[in-house]
Write a protein that binds this DNA or RNA. Structure first.
Lengths: 338, 338
DNA sequence: GTGAAAGCGCTAACAA
DNA sequence: TTGTTAGCGCTTTCAC
């Protein structure tokens, strides 16, 4: 690669000091009252030499990189790419660049990622926490590093958090199925210590309890080592119950997609034979034979709030944000009245 | 945020020079034959002070950031997230961090993105070019900046390029439909100056020509300002032809998904009433009523080759890579024999 | 074995 | 109005 021109190169070409060049190229020529022809000469030299500022050097000096880190749980999740897109757009406003990384739900990778981002001096972090990452998060808090947690809440942690009303929405979803006269509503989720899934389960249970004690056999919490296979087995078991389940509430979009694929293979008709509801949205739903009823997270709103909160944190503003956002309910045709 | 400890802090705590600390913390204690107890003292101090290296400072000094930039056309494309995931994984091997950015198919945003990445001193770039970006790419070549183009080929540009055999695969796909006795094969694509789409069209045309002159009314190239609407209109027109089209070959996954959604709405049965083939894969296909026959790009291979090529370029190796990769053909049930 | 010191490219306080 | 200079945190050469 060709050597890049530096401020010094311009300075010596024009015969002035680097300081002057710095002023001009940073638009401080008014403030510093640099002479008009000087400004022009410097500008011309910069162009002639193909000058590109070195932000690394600037960052070292100013102790600001104007870069934020964004740690997602898995790039394959619709949530991840959706929020990423929204964050990228929102960053224009702050002139931030974002370095993104995926932990793959792996605490070790998660810790490594945080380390690298901090070493690269990002000004702040937006984080989707994973299981068993409390130590890392606590360390950030202790170092007063600016960051905000999204999507998942860590209990007992002092941090900015933005999430949705998991329990309330799950309760409402289940209530919707009950309203459509489904009475054997299965719940398929993951085994997880993460609070958002625990909350969704709570919402499901509290809704079901309004009509009687929940049947534990209708609740499937999968280890998620081999999702497709586990969902397949779970659904087969649910359908073999007597009385069988008459509907399924999927706690995530990934589970719903796996489930629908299996139902397709079984030739089971939705909603005629089985009601289906998914907590989260998936793009794959749109090609399913009937529109799937599901919740929708306000991804743009989450991103905006996250950036806004992060900005405050970076500016050293005191206080913690703690937002629980509403979701949209998209009524399809997958829970038709029985 | 708390002030971070620096090498100097450790040095003065232990009472040695920063050089020594640097040696130890970079694992050069053997090579520099640093005393054993000294090593321990320095290590302990680093832990005690919560030392984190400042990569910005190191980068300024070494002129290497160990960061690469990855510019995609749109994060919503399956290709983008798929390659991104593969690149991220592949980067472990090189200890690279990747800064990703999306141009949104917008040349202005594209140029801006390149500028920012270069200013941030990325060691190299992996780029999915967009329309009208030739000037920027040529500038990179002129500056001998290390980069590699993927997915799309820019004609007449001196650069490393990795893509798939668009023409050959499109020819083969069309041939597959012909082999299933489809004779009125429509082709839906985008209006674009990009060579990969031109090549797909060439492949389609050359296959069709083997059985006679192509009917231009069967070819729809959409402006892609409002995809769903344009696809809807195009399909309606194709079905209204006499004789109507008996199958559709979609040049991209996004078009295929739009198209299938409309076919769903029309109640048209695939493959009974219409054969469907998509050049690219979409996750949404898996929930469609019948498995869609489609091509699959070797995303992992593309990523590996891209990283490998970039590494060479960064190391200043001469020569240009120019790979045209094969694709996998996934036979579903959407082109059943008529 | 260890340390002094230069310097990466830039900004900003201070001088003139 | 323009220039000098210190120094951000680190690596690395050279000297002791």
């Amino acid at each position: 690669m060709k050597k890049k021109a530096s401020l010094k190169d311009i300075a010596s070409k024009v015969g002035v000091s680097t300081a002057l060049v710095s002023y001009v190229l940073n638009g401080q020529e008014q403030e510093k009252r640099v002479g008009g022809e000087m400004v022009k000469k410097i500008r011309d030299a910069a162009v002639a030499l193909h000058y590109t500022p070195n932000r690394i050097a600037r960052s070292l000096r100013t102790k600001k990189t104007n870069t934020i880190g964004f740690v997602v749980a898995d790039i394959d999740y619709r949530f991840s790419s959706g929020v990423m897109k929204a964050i990228e757009e929102g960053c224009l406003k702050y002139s931030w660049t974002v370095i993104y990384g995926s932990s793959g739900e792996n605490p070790k990778k998660f810790a490594e990622l945080l380390k690298v981002l901090v070493e690269r001096q990002v000004d702040g972090l937006i984080i989707v926490p994973v299981e068993h990452c409390n130590k890392q998060i606590e360390e950030l808090t202790k170092q007063r590093f600016p960051f905000v947690l999204i999507d998942r809440i860590l209990p007992g942690i002092d941090a900015n958090m933005i999430t949705v009303k998991n329990e309330q929405v799950a309760h409402m979803c289940t209530g919707h199925l009950l309203g459509k006269r489904f009475r054997r509503i299965a719940y398929i989720s993951y085994q997880s210590s993460l609070l958002n899934l625990a909350d969704r389960k709570k919402g499901y249970l509290s809704a079901v309890r309004e009509l009687g004690p929940p049947d534990p056999r209708l609740i499937k919490e999968l280890p998620n080592l081999n999702r497709d296979e586990e969902v397949k087995v779970a659904i087969d078991e649910l359908l073999a119950l007597s009385p069988a389940c008459d509907s399924i509430f999927f706690a995530t979009d990934t589970l719903a997609v796996s489930g629908l694929r299996h139902l397709n293979a079984l030739g089971i008709k939705v909603p005629e034979q089985l009601g289906i509801l998914s907590f989260d949205e998936s793009d794959a739903f749109e090609l399913y034979r009937c529109p799937i009823t599901h919740g929708r997270q306000p991804l743009d709103h989450i991103a905006r709030l996250a950036l806004d909160t992060l900005q405050r944190a970076i500016d050293g503003m005191p206080g913690r944000a703690n937002h629980m956002l509403d979701m949209t309910f998209i009524e399809g045709k997958s829970c038709r009245e029985k």
